[in-house]
């Protein structure tokens, strides 16, 4: 019995029913506290446990005994509590069953669509046949009288920039809207800091000789849009690719100095405005060119086709600037 610690000795004594001290043992603070608690309950007639605990805590704090209690009740505030890694590998049962149904349904819908489309494709007029309903008087008019009415040798350019120039204006506006909304989404405030990537030596050596050719070819395709295959959209895409290559060859810092974002957006807006003004003038001075204000020129010459050449230039500028803007916006940036 002598080897046991004090508390164990007391427990054994308590179990044996022979406690050394009486029920109001003086040297046990916990027991005393419990006694006070019982008296408190007696005095108030009901269990006001919270109030009692509060009173106790204040007393203990006054005595300076409260470090441990404080640590338990108010744990020290961690500035950045670790987020629970919420990466569910397994889903709950209901969601999983719904997902299964969803998968089966989507495959079924896709198969149904495929079957219907294949049946339609097999019953369509044969590929390359000449007496198809798509080759109606509209195509005939564009092909027969396109050259004299628009002055463009390229029938597609004449179609999209003369007969249907308003649609093309809408297309350019769609591109412009996409560029603007992408810039809005990606240029969030607080993300101004950029780390520029320098030019890659291999690419720079190769690209320096390739770059002028690509840019020149882009300009050629834009300017010759009414004479040969191409036009503002394809030439603008070539020019945009050339600008992206220039950014890789010269380095982003140099490119940002030469063609800052502001210049790009200004050029796009100006080109769109110019397109709208030119086409608006053309509509205003006799819709469908009944008055024929703008000289058509000789088909085949570079300065021909009325407004098609300047419209092609505008479209080319819009497309090239938009492509380059997309590239600069999607570059990885320093946070």
């Amino acid at each position: 019995m002598k080897d046991n610690p004090q508390w164990l000795e007391r427990v054994i004594q308590w179990a044996a029913g022979q406690e050394q001290e009486g029920p109001e043992g003086p040297e046990d603070p916990e027991r005393q506290e419990f006694q006070e608690y019982l008296e408190y309950i007696d005095a108030h007639g009901y269990m006001e446990f919270g109030a009692y605990r509060y009173m106790r805590r204040r007393e203990r704090a006054a005595l300076g005994l409260d470090a441990v209690t404080e640590a338990i009740h108010n744990p020290p505030h961690q500035p950045n509590p670790p987020k629970p890694q919420h990466r569910p590998r397994r889903r709950p049962g209901l969601l999983r069953r719904q997902l299964w149904v969803y998968r089966v349904l989507s495959v079924g819908v896709a198969l149904c669509l495929a079957v219907i489309f294949t049946a339609v494709a097999l019953s369509l007029p044969g590929f390359g046949e000449t007496d198809v309903p798509a080759l109606n008087e509209v195509a005939q008019r564009y092909l027969e009288r396109g050259m004299e009415e628009t002055g463009a040798v390229n029938a597609v350019t004449g179609l999209i920039l003369e007969y249907r120039a308003f649609d093309t204006f809408g297309e350019s506006a769609v591109l412009f809207a996409a560029a603007v909304s992408t810039a809005l989404l990606l240029n969030a405030p607080g993300r101004r800091l950029r780390n520029y990537r320098g030019p890659d030596p291999v690419l720079s050596t190769l690209g320096r000789s390739l770059l002028p050719v690509i840019l020149l070819f882009g300009v050629y395709v834009v300017v010759n849009g009414h004479l040969s295959p191409g036009g503002g959209f394809s030439g603008g895409a070539v020019l945009g690719a050339g600008l992206i290559l220039a950014s890789l060859v010269l380095g982003e810092e140099e490119m940002d100095r030469l063609l800052p974002q502001r210049t790009m957006s200004r050029a796009t807006t100006l080109a769109l405005l110019a397109y709208g003004l030119m086409k608006g003038y053309s509509f205003f001075t006799g819709a469908n060119h009944l008055g024929g204000e703008i000289p058509k020129g000789t088909p085949g010459a570079i300065l021909s086709g009325g407004l098609i050449l300047p419209l092609n230039l505008c479209v080319g500028v819009i497309v090239a600037c938009t492509m380059y803007t997309f590239y600069t916006l999607f570059l990885s940036r320093e946070e």
């Binding site: 000449t130 195509a139 564009y142 027969e144 040798v153 029938a155 597609v156 179609l159």
Partner: peptide, 19 residues
């Protein structure tokens, strides 16, 4: 459809789907 003078219109493909 790069138009030439004196060519039948059936010699070209349809330009409308291109647009």
């Amino acid at each position: 459809p790069m138009l030439e003078e004196g060519q039948e219109w059936t010699a070209y493909i349809n330009p409308v789907p291109g647009g």
